[in-house]
């Protein structure tokens, strides 16, 4: 028996969102009487950070502190329509809708403040700390809270905004067949190092090195967290997870966590990540979002590394020890493809 080292590489261009045109997200923003802002959405935060990122985006656009922005989401009874959280679309689609809604609310806020200060709204700016002042004259200012109170109780105005983001449908050019179905792409490259035991067929991943280009990382810590968790999930899909493990008869398959194989805390693989930031033009503050792409490239990279280690090309997932052993047997033994 021998352990064979292998290295596999994969890269990915990942289209952000459902790219056939349409794919709308809506956002509503309004101020409370005390000058805080509520962002109403229907987009779901499953833990990927949707609420944190839309909160940052709204605060940045409004020009108010992040602590003064609240995000209310996930109830389609009370929030404006959204297509949902899938296809890595959240940051891009919902973020863009939030920018539009927050920009409209900011314009209303600046008008209300201008009325109070008796100046032109164009001469006003925010300091990001809860104040609105005359440009070049920080002394002439009003707080966002006082502006909201004046708007609501004196001027009879709401500080609110509506936003929608919609991808225009791209028709196929009759002559060339050309179309532009996508908005923007995120990119990644992954290198997986692993070992294959040619007696048991067992695969042990030893290291992952990756580079992800996600536009601007709007919340770098959350981006990193999602990349680490997603890569783990990718390895899990590549090597372990299936509801149809060995037997042709479905009734022998796993139907609970006892028999459904997933790696645990003891199977964590060292993962070095480089996040490259190339802000996308049509993305909110340049952020495209990691999304599904954080798991996908791990699967081909693992398959390639196994081929590199023992010369077995598996095209069915997960790559279980049984499949590796059958492949080695069919080839008449392990056939390492050389080192890098």
């Amino acid at each position: 028996m021998a352990l064979h080292k292998g290295r596999g590489f994969a890269c990915i261009n990942y289209p952000i969102g459902m790219n056939l045109g349409g794919d709308p997200s809506q956002a509503l923003v309004h101020s409370t009487p005390d000058g805080k802002f509520m962002v109403s959405l229907s987009a779901i935060d499953l833990g990927q950070g949707m609420k944190s990122v839309t909160r940052q985006i709204a605060a940045e656009t409004l020009g108010v502190p992040v602590a003064d922005v609240y995000v209310d989401t996930a109830d389609s009874d009370t929030g404006p329509h959204d297509m949902g959280s899938f296809a890595s679309r959240g940051t891009h689609r919902v973020g863009n809708a939030v920018i539009r809604a927050a920009a409209e609310a900011r314009a209303a806020m600046m008008e209300a403040a201008a009325d109070e200060l008796e100046v032109n709204p164009a001469d006003l700016d925010t300091d990001g700390e809860g104040n609105i002042h005359v440009k070049g004259a920080p002394g002439r200012s009003i707080t966002v809270a006082d502006t909201a109170i004046a708007a609501q109780f004196k001027q009879g105005k709401t500080l609110s905004g509506r936003g929608i983001f919609l991808i225009p449908t791209s028709d196929v050019d009759a002559d060339t067949g050309e179309m532009t179905p996508v908005s923007c792409f995120a990119h990644a490259a992954v290198v997986v190092d692993l070992e294959v035991d040619d007696e048991t067929g067992e695969v042990t991943v030893s290291q992952v090195n990756s580079a992800y280009e996600v536009g601007r990382a709007l919340n770098p810590k959350m981006v990193e967290q999602q990349l680490i968790g997603g890569a783990w999930m990718g390895i899990s899909h590549a090597l372990y997870e299936t509801t149809e493990p060995y037997y042709p008869d479905r009734s022998h398959g796993p139907d609970d966590y006892n028999s459904y194989l997933m790696p645990g805390a003891g199977d964590v693989v060292p993962h070095n990540i480089a996040v490259l930031e190339r802000p996308a033009e049509d993305a909110p503050f340049g952020g495209k979002g990691p999304g599904e792409m954080c798991a996908n490239p791990l699967l081909p990279a693992v398959a390639n590394a196994i081929y590199n280690a023992v010369g077995v090309r598996c095209d069915m997932l997960p790559i279980t020890p049984e499949k590796v052993l059958r492949g080695i047997q069919a080839n008449g033994g392990a056939q390492p493809k050389g080192t890098f």
Partner: peptide, 13 residues
Amino acid sequence: ISGNICRCTGYEP
């Protein structure tokens, strides 16, 4: 924590 499953974080954090 070997008896605790986490689907999201990859355990490292």
